[in-house]
């Protein structure tokens, strides 16, 4: 049995496998299928300062090797989370991480302040990249596509949040490395990438887009090579840990990300196909390390 533990700044993970936000609920939805405490970290459904109903139905389209979604950050708001969900998840013995989204700078800051007060939440994953928020004037997409605005929101949240701050990056940019460097300088403890890739599906009978918002975020194995390339580029350009995600379906996929330079991985859409996939990936990484004769997962990070 190899040592699977890794560190993201001050955050210790018992293994490098986490769940991607929006694909694993608050963890509890999957408790019948996996022992949640065998997962390195659970990044919960995206939370915003205000209650959001999200986008109109239909919100998804299946594509070969993946799907497109446009949920639009549906959630009941951070105060509801703190009062009703936090008590149910706080004693799960793994890292229960809040994925935090926003529209205005103030909405990010106010939400981060509330999460900072929740003792058993050891980290935030800051969503500056969700492509589904349609608010104008600097929301979602706008923050993460430009190094200056990306750094601005990270700096603002950093001032009010003193635990581990992971910043989730969007792939829908010309140069992801410049964004990663900007958020590193602004105080991020780690970056996670990639969020979904902007995509589209059309119903040729109705001659209309399948999704109500016309475009949405693509995920699943279809995006894996793109994600892997970006993780490799960013990991070689920044000095903070990188969390890799995008189309991981099995241990071999996760190992590719680790070799490319990711310190940890997130599993997303695969949870919909196999609700028990997370623990299988952790076991598979261990088997690989044993087979190759490594004592710790840290020995393979960034070998490529």
């Amino acid at each position: 049995m190899a040592d699977l533990s890794v560190k993201l700044g001050g955050l210790e993970l018992k293994n490098p496998v986490m769940t991607a936000s929006g694909t694993f609920g608050y963890g509890l939805e999957f408790a019948d299928f996996v022992n949640l405490e065998e997962i390195g970290g659970i990044i919960m459904k995206g939370t915003t300062i205000e209650h959001r109903e999200g986008n109109p139905y239909p919100r998804m389209a299946e594509i070969p090797m993946g799907m497109i979604n446009a949920v639009g950050m549906q959630n009941k708001g951070v105060h509801y989370f703190a009062e009703n969900i936090y008590p149910k998840v706080k004693d799960i013995d793994t890292n229960m991480i809040v994925n935090l989204g926003g529209t205005t700078l103030e909405s990010y800051v106010e939400c981060a302040k509330v999460v900072n007060g929740l003792d058993k939440i050891p980290a935030i994953e800051l969503n500056i990249s969700c492509p589904n928020q349609r608010s104008t004037g600097g929301g979602g997409m706008a923050w993460g596509v430009d190094p200056v605005s990306a750094a601005e929101v990270v700096e603002a949240v950093r001032k009010v949040y003193d635990k581990t701050l992971i910043v989730k990056l969007t792939p829908n940019v010309t140069d992801i490395v410049s964004i990663a460097k900007a958020v590193e300088s602004a105080g991020a403890d780690a970056v996670s990438l990639i969020n979904t890739v902007l995509g589209m599906a059309i119903d040729i009978e109705k001659q209309k887009p399948v999704i109500s918002t016309k475009t949405g975020g693509m995920s699943g194995p279809a995006v894996k090579p793109l994600a892997l390339r970006m993780v490799w580029q960013v990991a070689h350009a920044v000095n903070i840990p990188v969390v890799g995600l995008g189309g991981i379906m099995k241990a071999e996929d996760a190992i590719e990300f680790l070799l490319a330079g990711a310190t940890a991985v997130e599993i997303g859409t695969a949870n919909f196909v196999d609700p028990a996939v997370t623990v299988k990936v952790a076991k598979g990484i261990n088997e690989y390390l044993d087979r190759k004769g490594y004592k710790s997962v840290n020995e393979i990070i960034g070998l490529v």
Partner: peptide, 22 residues
């Protein structure tokens, strides 16, 4: 029978408009 992905209440794709929201 709205279109759905996970079937577990995680992806929030199959929402219906109700008196309690989506």
């Amino acid at each position: 029978e709205n279109m759905m992905a996970c079937g577990l209440g995680a992806c929030l794709c199959c929402v219906e408009n109700t008196t309690e929201g989506h």
